[in-house]
Amino acid sequence: MKLITHNMLTSKCMKGVTVGYPLKIQAVDVKTSEVDFNPEFISRLIPKVDWNVLCEAAESVGFLDDLPRELIENYENDVDFLKKAHRVLLEVDIINGELVCPETGRKFPINNGIPNMLLNEDEV
């Protein structure tokens, strides 16, 4: 699971959960894998990302490095910044671990890099 996916996932479809966002990450196995870098696309993607949630997620798995916690101005033209954003959004990969609902503590397993968000019948 890449951090872009984490940025988009909630547990709000669970019974009794109102926001369910952001999910906490408990990572067991984290890798990075190289993905082709497209600066123009990354700058189009950034406005759709919850930047605080991204930075906290990156920090919690030990990959914040020197990514600025505040979005910088004119990032469209800052290739160095876009490269760092690309890395945390698309290259850091949680292979095994858990996502945890912030309201109920319900754990969702991540195996082989795939989060399992399925609920039991009595949870919906």
Binding site: L9, G113, I114, P115, M117, L118
Partner: peptide, 12 residues
Amino acid sequence: HCTNMNLYCNFK
């Protein structure tokens, strides 16, 4: 990017 879920219910 794959996620095991019912339809799209876990996307924000």
